[in-house]
């Protein structure tokens, strides 16, 4: 029984990894946790882009364990997506910071149903 369930779990995990099956809530949670672990390691090593160049080298060397967990728990398409997302998010933050420094005003992008002071995402 133990053997059977383990192999079924493995099969399911494999399906999630290859994208044959969409992950459910717990699997998504596991993936996000693994992703956050990987992100934390990248933060520690000051790596933004773990896909190319120097960043990839450092990430491969310093964050191998985290990367392995990340790949194990997430669909491969998601792994690439989250790595790219990190870069895009960083650029966005940089641009915002630059604009703010230049004295740009932040425009409210809220709908008319919004109240001021609402939580921004």
């Amino acid at each position: 029984m133990g053997w059977f369930s383990t192999s079924a779990d493995e099969k399911r995990k494999e399906e999630v990894r290859t994208g044959a099956r969409a992950p459910d809530r717990t699997e998504r949670k596991q993936c996000w946790d693994a992703r956050d672990g990987f992100y934390r390691c990248l933060d520690k090593n000051n790596v933004v882009d773990s896909l190319t160049g120097e960043g990839k080298k450092i990430a491969d060397k310093q964050c191998a364990t985290e990367h392995k967990a990340f790949e194990e728990n997430c669909a491969s398409a998601w792994v690439t997506y989250f790595k790219r997302y990190r870069v895009a998010e960083h650029k966005k933050k940089e641009t915002l910071a630059r604009l703010e420094k230049e004295g740009a005003n932040r425009m409210a992008v809220e709908g008319p149903g919004d109240t001021p002071g609402s939580k921004k995402i």
């Binding site: 709908g111 149903g113 919004d114 109240t115 609402s118 995402i121």
Partner: peptide, 11 residues
């Protein structure tokens, strides 16, 4: 109306 990411569920 289109409701987006900027709206909280309550809003």
């Amino acid at each position: 109306e289109a409701l987006g990411r900027q709206h909280s569920p309550e809003q």
